[in-house]
Simulated scan of single mutants.
Amino acid sequence: MQNAEIQRWLAARREQGLYRQEQQVQTLPGGLLNSNGALFVNFSGNDYLGLGEAPLLRQAMADAALADGVASTGSPLITGYQPAHAELIATLRDWLGVEDVLLFSSGFAANQAMLSALVGPDDLLLLDRYCHASMQDLLTSGQRSFKRYPHQDLTALAAMLQQSGIKNQDVVVATEGVFSMDGDVTDCAAILHLLTAKQPLLLDDAHGIGVLGSEGRGSWAAHGVQVSALQCLMANFGKALAGQGGFLAGSRDVIDFIRQQSRHYIYSTALSPALCRAMQSSVLLCRAEQWRREKLADNIALFRQLARQAGLGIADSMTAIQPVLCADNTSAMRWSNALKERGIWLHAIRPPTVPQARLRISLSASHSELQIRQLVQVLVQTQPVTAQNHTTTIPES
Rank of each mutant, 00 (worst) to 15 (best):
A11F: 01
Q24V: 14
Q26A: 12
S44C: 10
Q59P: 00
A65H: 06
G69K: 00
T73C: 12
P76W: 06
T79A: 15
H85L: 12
I89C: 14
T91I: 05
L92V: 13
A109S: 11
L118V: 03
L126K: 09
Q136K: 15
Y149R: 09
L157T: 05
Q163D: 14
S164V: 07
G165C: 13
G165D: 15
Q169W: 06
T175P: 04
V178P: 01
F179G: 03
D187W: 02
A189C: 10
L202S: 01
I209Y: 05
L212A: 07
G224E: 06
S228G: 05
M234Y: 06
G238V: 02
K239I: 02
Q244E: 14
G246Y: 11
V254T: 14
I258C: 10
S262I: 02
H264D: 06
I266M: 10
T269C: 08
S272L: 07
Q280K: 11
Q290P: 00
Q290S: 13
K295F: 01
L302C: 08
F303C: 08
L306R: 12
R308L: 15
D316C: 03
D316L: 15
T319Y: 07
A320M: 09
T330F: 00
K340C: 14
G343V: 11
A348K: 09
P351L: 06
S362K: 11
L375Q: 03
Q377A: 10
L379R: 07
Q381I: 03
E396Q: 10
S397L: 00
